[in-house]
Design a protein around this nucleic acid. Structure first.
Length: 121
DNA sequence: TTGTTGACCCAAG
DNA sequence: TCTTGGGCCAACA
């Protein structure tokens, strides 16, 4: 399952995050079988904003860091906008951009399920 | 091939 | 809770 572009693998997993839930970059990386590729996941999502037309269905806002915070730093995509999107889904985001992972964390998929998804697309 | 750059993670202090 | 330092990975020049 490493034949497909890394970007596409990331997007495929992120698309499976249910509404009202969040997960972390590191968790997405683990689902792809690359436990230490968290930075690469962030890189993939940052590239997303440049191709918003093709991947408008990817809920990038549901991916935050492992501390349950939005530490995004970008002129095109502000942390405040991400917080706003999450609140629209019913997720409580505090003023300092914190999210209670005990309530909203999406445990994610197992490796086999991810494999099925990637193969099926 | 090498070096740099991120929307990161984690352990220490 | 916050800051540092080391580690990892993929894209790009």
């Amino acid at each position: 399952m490493t034949e497909r572009n890394f970007y596409e693998q990331v997007y495929a997993v992120v698309r499976r995050i249910p509404r009202g839930k969040v997960t972390s970059y590191g968790r997405v990386a683990k689902m792809l079988g690359r436990p230490n590729a968290a930075r690469a996941v962030g890189y993939a999502l940052s590239a997303l904003k440049d191709h918003r037309d093709q991947h408008a269905d990817v809920p990038w806002q549901r991916v935050i860091n492992s501390q349950g915070r939005i530490s995004i730093v970008s002129r095109e995509t502000s942390a405040q906008r991400q917080a706003e999107l999450l609140r629209q889904e019913g997720i409580a985001v505090s003023d300092d951009l914190r999210i209670n992972l005990d309530l909203y964390l999406w445990e994610g998929l197992h490796l086999l399920e991810v494999d099925d998804i990637l193969r099926g697309q």
